[in-house]
Design a protein around this nucleic acid. Sequence first.
DNA 1: ATAATAGTGTCTTTGAGACAATATTGA
DNA 2: TCAATATTGTCTCAAAGACACTATTAT
Lengths: 262, 262
Amino acid sequence: MKKNVNSIAASAAPSSPAAFADVAVASIPMHARPLVTVDVVIWTVLPRPHATGFELQVLLVRRPALEGEPFPHAWALPGGFVNIDQDESLLACAVRKLQDKTGLQTHHLEQLGSWGNAHRDPRGWSATHVYMALIPAPEAVDASAQWHTLAQVADTPLAFDHRELLDAALSRLRSKVEYTSLPAFLLPEPFTLPQLQQVYEAVLGRELDKSAFRKRMLDSDFLQESGPIEGTGPRKPMSYHIRNRTHPTIFPRTFRASEGGG
Amino acid sequence: MKKNVNSIAASAAPSSPAAFADVAVASIPMHARPLVTVDVVIWTVLPRPHATGFELQVLLVRRPALEGEPFPHAWALPGGFVNIDQDESLLACAVRKLQDKTGLQTHHLEQLGSWGNAHRDPRGWSATHVYMALIPAPEAVDASAQWHTLAQVADTPLAFDHRELLDAALSRLRSKVEYTSLPAFLLPEPFTLPQLQQVYEAVLGRELDKSAFRKRMLDSDFLQESGPIEGTGPRKPMSYHIRNRTHPTIFPRTFRASEGGG
DNA sequence: ATAATAGTGTCTTTGAGACAATATTGA
DNA sequence: TCAATATTGTCTCAAAGACACTATTAT
């Protein structure tokens, strides 16, 4: 006869003291619980130095070098343990970490997924909940944090499995950029269509056709005109605001649909 | 001065005994850890009784009615606590639960995301990692489990926040069905194109154009002919196998791209 | 032959890609 | 006027939608 999955725990041999919950309830597992953390992949774009266009950047923090801390001094994604006394939910925990590092509150934040196994943290079985944030570059970031380009991060060892988490975030970002207005969340408003196209190109790592790009953006009606603005050349471009910041717009096709790509 | 997020835990007031990890490490949080569970949304299709076509079904299990168990006797998604002695990873835990309930091992299983907050489980702060499986209807399922149609589940109270998890899974499933070959994983092989179209229609809840459907399926080349087979009418339809079961095929456009939909 | 299901062909539509042409404005 | 950027227009193409048409086979 099969056991009910919810009581398997109770039949396992206790491997550590049982009294680690505030309330003793029969159905709570007797064995040790995983470590639970939240990590946030924070993206922005910064102007490319000595050149035109933008460059995609990710925010990393230095791991502390204290006794017992794994990966001392290594670069890592901002994150840390869920504090069940302080954090009402996983999302609230991610919002708190974003706020801690960037001072920003109300920007695009979505969950990427969770990674959990016995080996990713030397301190024990650990599960992390990964969120991805898209923000306009803030004036300053926390002293422990620093923006990194993809080229820089490729040359940098990262703590834990954060390389894998970052790769997954980049993959998700690029995939969504093919058919949504997400990159608009990386720019301060108002912005121009040439700027927005440069952001798309920075994220995708390839150039886009100007005419097709403008048709897509304007036809989908997610932008609101905000008057001419100073551009990078003599002719003043139109500037735009995002009509609805709560959700990105979904376009009916991907770029380069004919070449396939997920 | 801002605290490092990874040591916030150490500065919080301990609310329960500290010695609940096998190894005492300075950087491990002193407060209680969340409960960690895995839930699996298992989808299949079954022939519609007294009618043509298929109906989408989700597998639910009865909650135990033991002392201290929340939501006694309610229907719930299959799942339970992660056992760090038994489960190497979250995915392995989901595979185990799928195997327990259906006897199936090697089918499409993807992570949906995680849900965690202070209130979803009366036993304490809890985070669940939700997976979604697509399987051909098995001969039999575990005695505690039962298939439910969407109509049935709409009339059924579900344990915890499982209604929300199920809604998210349905939403993800429908969204992916618009542009991938995922529904093929719901049928036993070999199957016919009319059958596959009926599955698409069952999941999407609307009819599709036969000609456009067949063009899409055959042009994308993810099916391999497997000889004529007995169909539901006098003319014998061609049957097909899936060329590559490891990944669904991604189509270049969604169905009804012009109507937008996410 | 007929009915019922399986499968194909043709025309239209939508929206992207290529790329040329036009518009604006400071120097 | 010229250079540099911004914006628009035209033609092509891929793939979906509508819907009519042909093919196969048990009765």
